[in-house]
Design a protein around this nucleic acid. Structure first.
Length: 510
RNA sequence: GCCCCGUUCGUCUAGCUGGCCUAGGACGCAAGAUUUUCAUUCUUGAAAUCAGGGGUUCGAAUCCCCUACGGGGUACCA
């Protein structure tokens, strides 16, 4: 029988989650849902020194915003808990002991200082120190020391770590779902610490134990884990869990768009685009890093952007709902090379999603921006404006730039337009137009448009002689949607007032 | 240094089992059309000698090897 798909996203709460992490989670989620499986959130907080308060809550809130739901884990519960590794602390020791007893691991009593000294000695000889099959023989561990010595050290509570004993001359194969067969020779690998002197497991031990206990079927994680994957594979073997060892898939990394290197949390706002899903305030320094949510990105757009950064369905479709993504997601189609984030394309995606969003929803958000500007206005009016200008916006916040003239009169008039369009007879013509508009009782788009156009025809003028300056007087600039839509929305009185003000202020332009 | 992974337009990428590739799409860029204007939209265009060099083959972006470059790892961090 096919094993049920169970995948996990396992961040460590060392700060805000960056978009690379979000993408990893997204791919896990898509894979799980595609196969009718479970998606769990496990918090890997084995390094107590790097714990950052608020990080866990941040992670949960971020996925909440994005609409990615966990089936199990921190914040949701489940049958395989606890899902926070610090809460699982007592259980790791027995697994470390199991390896100790079976000879797959050994005690090491070397202090950090001792190891540093050895490292320096190696460096001086231009050699690289590694705690491995070649060096463990003369370091202080249960392999080099006599049984009595080891017992004495343990009895006296001398701090120790447990290290994995990598076998010699073994070729370790990883069958990666994305990269295929990857092999490494065990002689080049070092005896990693599995269990720290503070009584906590390292990532490697905790990860394998938890994945096993939680019945994880597939491990989908960043490429930075590929080098330590042989250790993980060997651990499954050492525990005798080979039969249920998950399949591995190592994702390409998200790279910095400017220089080189992988995108990191520290890149923050340096790059001109958010690196985090939500805004984050560093609890220690108070530094604020911008987030996609606060920058006006729609969650659906962020998901779409991330999904296509390193994966594509092989068709020419580019806009996908989450459900569509689940439907067509194939892990084999994830690319092997790292991807750089493209800000322009990200904006384009958000533009697409903004157009898809109902006007009243956009209007609700715009209303709160207007409120901040002390503009108190009804939703229906704003909704109409949104319908008129949203196609020129990438973000809800762009609406103001495109529609402020609906709410406030022009304070100045674009000099370039005046120079180009405001002629000697313009003031006179606009007076006539004002008069004409004033005579219209049914002040709607069709009527005003018809009347003004007839006027232009009758006087044998061309559109350019009237329309541009009329727009200038209403908007203050030579831009914006259909002018008759604008005047019908702001109303007759306001329109006339603006025309008269413009005539007064620009005058004859002599 | 050593180990591992990668390398197609500026960017994201299609191309996987070699011939349909004079290398396709998208973003961005340029031009034109539409518009009273700006933007949107539409059309067209420029843009990769497929990192370089060797093979294999009638034929290679696609297979093999070497080199270069990029990335990752090399912690009692994850």
């Amino acid at each position: 029988m096919e094993r049920k798909v169970r995948v996990r996203f396992a961040p460590s709460p060392t700060g805000p989650l960056h978009i690379g992490g979000v993408r990893t989670a997204l791919y896990n989620y898509l894979f799980a849902k595609k196969h009718g499986g479970d998606f769990l959130l496990r918090i890997e907080d084995t390094d107590q020194t790097r714990f950052v308060p608020g990080a866990e809550e941040y992670i949960i809130e971020a996925f909440n915003w994005l609409g990615i739901k966990f089936d199990e884990g921190v914040g949701v519960g489940g049958d395989f808990g606890p899902y926070r590794q610090s809460d699982r602390k007592p259980m790791y020791k027995e697994y470390a002991e199991q390896l100790l007893n079976s000879g797959w691991a050994y005690y090491a009593f070397d202090t950090t200082e001792e190891l540093d000294t050895v490292r320096k000695e190696f460096e001086q000889e231009k050699k690289n120190f590694q705690y491995d099959c070649n060096t463990r023989g003369y370091l202080r561990n249960s392999l080099s020391l006599s049984k009595e010595e080891v017992d004495t050290l343990l009895r006296n509570n001398i701090p120790y770590v447990v290290r994995f004993k990598f076998p010699k001359d073994t070729e370790i194969h990883i069958n990666d779902l994305i990269r295929g067969d990857v092999k490494m020779n065990s002689n080049l690998l070092d005896d990693k610490v599995l269990y720290k002197s503070d009584g906590m497991p390292t990532y490697h031990l905790a990860n394998i134990v938890d994945d096993h206990l939680m019945n994880i079927s597939h491990v989908i994680r960043g490429e930075e884990w590929l080098p330590s994957c042989p250790l993980h594979v060997m651990l499954y073997k050492a525990f005798g869990w080979e039969e249920t060892m998950p399949e591995f898939a190592h994702l390409p990394l998200l790279l910095k768009p400017d220089g080189n290197g992988k995108l990191s949390k520290r890149d923050g706002d340096r790059l001109g685009f958010p690196v985090f899903p939500l805004q984050w305030t560093d609890p220690k320094t108070g530094d604020v890093s911008s987030g996609y949510r606060e920058s006006g990105y729609l969650p659906e757009a962020v998901i779409n952007i991330l999904a296509l950064l390193g994966w594509n369905p092989g068709t020419e479709q580019e806009i996908f709902t989450l459900d569509e993504l689940i439907d067509i997601f194939l892990i084999e189609r994830i690319s092997k090379s790292g991807a750089k984030f493209d800000l322009e394309k990200a904006k384009w995606f958000n533009h697409q999603y903004l157009q898809l969003m109902p006007n009243n929803k956009i209007a609700e958000q715009y209303l709160s921006i207007l409120k901040e500007k002390n503009i108190d206005i009804c939703l229906e009016y704003v909704e109409k404006i949104v319908g008129l200008v949203k196609e020129r916006c990438n973000f809800v916040a762009d609406l103001w730039e495109q529609s402020s003239f609906f709410f406030v009169k022009p304070e100045s008039y674009d000099e370039k337009v005046i120079k180009k369009r405001w002629k000697e007879d313009t003031a006179q013509r606009l007076n006539e137009i004002a008069e004409l508009l004033n005579s219209i009782d049914d002040f709607n788009v069709e009527k005003t448009e018809h009347e003004v156009h007839s006027f232009i025809e009758e006087k044998e003028l061309n559109m350019g002689q009237i329309m541009n300056c009329l727009r200038l007087s209403i908007v203050g600039e030579g831009k914006g949607p259909n002018l008759f839509e604008i005047i019908s929305l702001i109303g007759k009185e306001e329109s006339l007032e603006r025309i008269n003000t413009a005539i007064d202020r620009i005058g004859k332009n002599e």
